[in-house]
Write a protein that binds this DNA or RNA. Structure first.
Lengths: 344, 344
DNA sequence: TTGTATGCGTTATCAA
DNA sequence: TTGATAACGCATACAA
């Protein structure tokens, strides 16, 4: 409970000097600074955040708004943000804003309006116009992870590119009957729509017909959709692009259950490089949600330091990780078989 | 940016009355209260949390400390806490304290010491003596989710009971060669140790030998451990108790890959009723992390309201959910086969 | 380099 | 029932 007055007294200086010594602002002789610091330490002095905030107008706290926290991508981003903020001594207050809930309304109307933070990180928020209005009216810098370009800072995967790469990989192997699994539900997410578009564009450019299979964006969702899709022997595709690894892995599990060998009868590719991807030998386009979260946090803190420099838009390129869930379609010989061995 | 002074002026009352009208403390005539409230609304007045905290000593914020946020259990608990706090208008600031990291030290030494919260919820923290000391020295009420009894409030699953039920279920089906998968690593968690004990005690009481197979507590961890365990045809168990569903599901996936049919050649039971449990037909002992989180939050808020009533210790009993990952061991006829059909 | 005095936006105490 | 005014604990402009 020791206040700065106690510290000042113990070091026999004024509160002002004590404050300067502790915060490192303004001139203080090295001698007295040491005395103050020692006094503070021995008294176990910790500045009251409320008082500091009131006096400075800054909270040393960052707000994070996300629609889910228990889904892999979001949890990973959160960890990345937390890590980065920790390093800079910033606190993190979390706002859960599940789409379509009453809680979400309260978050936008009441909680965010309290401005208990110096800046905001919005992860996959997809705000309505109304919500977006509230967001900007808060008057604090915002960085979003995932999502379309905006005036705020953005850190996101280049979804179009990732989906294109995934599709091209399968086309390159000789597949033509390639289905895209994911999205299309009630709360169609921007990410999934973009990836679907990347897939569709690539398919059309190659002169083959795209085939979108709606699916909940989760492992059980991918499983269920794949069971339906693969159960019909006649129209069965030879390859699947999952909108994310969870969906792709669900499809692999479904295939195994149905006795369809992967990759010899069915190729599957995902986007993420999820924690489980290796265990399922999933070929995928890697992104790092943790790195994205950390990057967003750094960008926001940078902005707080220098309010004048405009914030950037960072588009990350996913890199293909080849594992063994993809191969040429049945009947088509492997490329390696038909060509000369590559020189070493 | 409107302050309470602006509201007061607009309603032509003093700041004091404005404050009383808005906070609902002290006498205010219904007439003026309405005037003040309307003025506040039309000005878009939102009280400065910093000023309120400074004046009242309360933050309307709850700190949550957990070692992971991306693991299923923790993420679910977090959602439960968030939900409950939201309903009561409380903010949530999150502290990530992964065991063995430098960040964890900083959380305990610096971040928590700032006391930016009225109370703390510790989820599966397993603090060292040193850390525990810091925790109590903060002087704020604490509720822990998961973990041993303490002076603080506790909300947790009865792990001993859950593991016993799981083991008894398998014993009752006629299994004798039952392995326990999970825990035993470097950061042996209290939960896993307790569940292991519940298993071991039950096995010994039944006169059969317990067999603990160490495993990382995750789906890939369970998979890897099960591949090793089941690969050895000679010493293969007929049943597995997973310390949690993730481990159990990993084991099921491993069994499928190895061509071992579940449940006819191998029974698997878990603890959790994880999001994926149904999709793998996993028999399991259900608990609700969300409910535990919400319960902990309510308990803490209750304590803040009435500081005198001591906090309780809530032990939840898991309930067995029968799916089709468990059956009698090979060679032993199903109970139903050997007995008269049950009356309808 | 240090000290004095004021402000930050509320709530709470005391009179009126 | 209301209003003036003093905390709350710190940072900072200004003076010394």
């Amino acid at each position: 409970m020791a206040g700065i007055a106690d510290v000042a007294r113990a070091a026999s200086v004024s509160k002002a000097t004590a404050s300067r010594a502790l915060t490192g602002s303004g001139y203080v002789s090295e001698q007295t600074r040491a005395r103050v610091v020692e006094a503070a330490a021995s008294l176990g002095y910790v500045a009251s955040t409320a008082a500091v905030s009131l006096a400075t107008g800054r909270t040393r706290n960052i707000g994070v708004v996300m629609p889910y926290v228990s889904r892999w991508f979001f949890a990973e981003v959160l960890e990345g943000i937390q890590d980065a903020l920790l390093r800079h001594g910033y606190d993190l207050t979390l706002y859960d804003a599940r789409p379509g809930t009453e809680g979400r309304t309260r978050v936008f109307d009441d909680f965010l309006a309290r401005k208990r933070f110096d800046g905001l990180i919005a992860v996959g928020l997809e705000p309505s116009d109304n919500e977006l209005g509230r967001l900007v009216s808060i008057g604090r810098p915002v960085v979003s992870v995932v999502g379309p370009p905006s005036e705020a800072g953005v850190v996101a995967l280049d979804d179009l590119h990732a989906a294109r790469r995934a599709t091209e990989h399968l086309l390159g192997l000789g597949h033509t009957r390639i289905a895209f699994l994911g999205g299309g539900g009630e709360h169609q997410a921007f990410v999934d729509a973009t990836r679907l578009r990347g897939y569709a564009v690539t398919m059309e450019a190659a002169g083959v017909e795209p085939h979108h299979v709606p699916s909940a964006v989760s492992l059980p969702g991918g499983y269920a959709a794949a069971v339906d899709l693969l159960g019909d022997t006649r129209e069965r595709p030879t390859a699947i692009v999952g909108t994310c690894d969870e969906v792709a892995i669900g499809a692999i599990i479904a295939a195994r259950r149905l006795g369809i060998p992967v990759p010899s009868s069915l190729s599957v590719v995902g986007i993420d490089n999820h924690e489980y991807a290796e265990m399922f030998s999933l070929t995928t386009l890697e992104q790092s949600p943790q790195a994205q979260g950390a990057r967003a946090a750094e960008m926001l803190l940078q902005r707080l330091r220098e309010p004048d420099v405009p914030m950037a838009e960072v588009r990350l390129q996913a890199t293909l990780i080849l594992r063994s869930s993809t191969a040429p379609p049945p009947g088509v010989p492997s490329v390696a078989v038909g060509s000369a061995p590559a020189p070493r």
